[in-house]
Computed example of a mutant assay.
Amino acid sequence: MCDDDYEFLGVPDPMLRSSWEHCRDIVLQAETGGYDNILLPSGYALGIDTTAFAAAIAPMLRRLALLMAVRIGESWPPQLARQIATIDRMLGGRLNINIISSDLPGETLPSGPRYARTVEAMRILRTLLNGEPLDHDGAFWKLKVDPPRITTMSGRAPLLYFGGLSPDARDAAARECDVYLMWPDTRDNVAAIIADLTERAARYGRTLRFGYRAHVVVRESEAEARAVADRLLSRLDVAQGAAIRARSLDARSAGVAAQTALREGAGGDGYAEDNLWTGIGRARSGCGAAIVGDPDQVLAKLQMYRDLGIDAFILSGYPHQAEADLFARHVLPRIDHAPLSRT
């Protein structure tokens, strides 16, 4: 969705550019491949529009759920609530929302106010999508409105996924989200983040579920998987990789800084720990590491995260369709998986 599909990282391929046709084919393949849910990311300056795409693809799906990213800085919450309810109806009740604490285009709010605005937005959305009238007197919105006549299929707000590592982001997650998303990290750091967010949420009388976003390279042998990972970077120009990272809207976030630290602390082969390869981050901002190995190793790595408390995985690879097919054949049938639902 955001012009981030490659055969060789950092080398644009016209056949893999963000387009209706290419993104449609990825989603339809995910449905036939047995996946439960698919992330539709969003970038103001990159790719095609996420909300429009979600509405277009919804009637084509029979079982797959959509995780639609929405950029709060670009949204008016009551209108967004109506869009969410409408698309959820088109999907038969299978829409989830990934909240992004974005700025307005051309605006740069400090972290504290930006995340405070995101907290307000999540509260507004949850109230309206739960079918309740809204009387909100906040710092960013002052609204007194009835809920949308069009409700979600369940009559309740969908699951709100949200991520961020800064103190302000963690507090926002503890206050309002349902599923806290994190990017790849070492086992100990993942455990520490889960413990911290669990404690923060408890202060507000809440509990969180946890999701893990990572890339995957799975092949029949570890040696083959490592060779494929190396091939991904074989045509990367260092300056081009730096330019890709710099142009990202989140290039200076705490999460990106953590991915940089993970990459810089990795061994000379780019592995931060067994089967966690940081080379992806040399050619992209954001999620910058991949689980690399044979099917047993990938499955064991995912199970380790599950044992730590991860409930949901958002996985991807390069090129998207080819790696999704490999994961669907080698790993997915061995996982007891189902759509994440409200508890």
Rank of each mutant, 00 (worst) to 15 (best):
T51M: 13
A52K: 10
F53A: 13
I57N: 09
A58G: 06
P59V: 11
P59C: 10
P59W: 10
M60A: 15
L61M: 10
R62A: 11
R63A: 15
L64N: 11
L64T: 08
A65D: 11
L66A: 09
L67R: 14
M68Y: 08
A69L: 08
V70N: 02
V70P: 05
V70S: 06
R71Q: 10
R71E: 04
R71F: 01
G73R: 13
E74K: 02
S75W: 00
P77M: 03
P77G: 07
P78E: 05
A81Y: 03
R82H: 12
Q83G: 03
A85H: 12
A85G: 12
R89W: 02
R89E: 06
M90L: 15
R94V: 04
N96G: 02
I99Y: 04
I100Y: 06
I100P: 07
S101D: 01
S102C: 09
S102Y: 05
S102I: 04
D103E: 05
L104E: 13
L104S: 14
P105E: 11
E107S: 13
T108A: 13
G112A: 12
R114Q: 02
R117W: 00
E120T: 05
E120Q: 07
A121S: 15
A121Y: 00
A121T: 07
M122N: 06
R123W: 01
R123K: 14
R126A: 11
T127E: 07
T127A: 08
L128E: 06
L129V: 12
L129Q: 14
N130K: 11
G131Y: 08
G131E: 05
E132H: 14
E132L: 15
D135S: 15
D137N: 14
G138C: 07
G138V: 05
A139F: 00
K142M: 01
L143M: 10
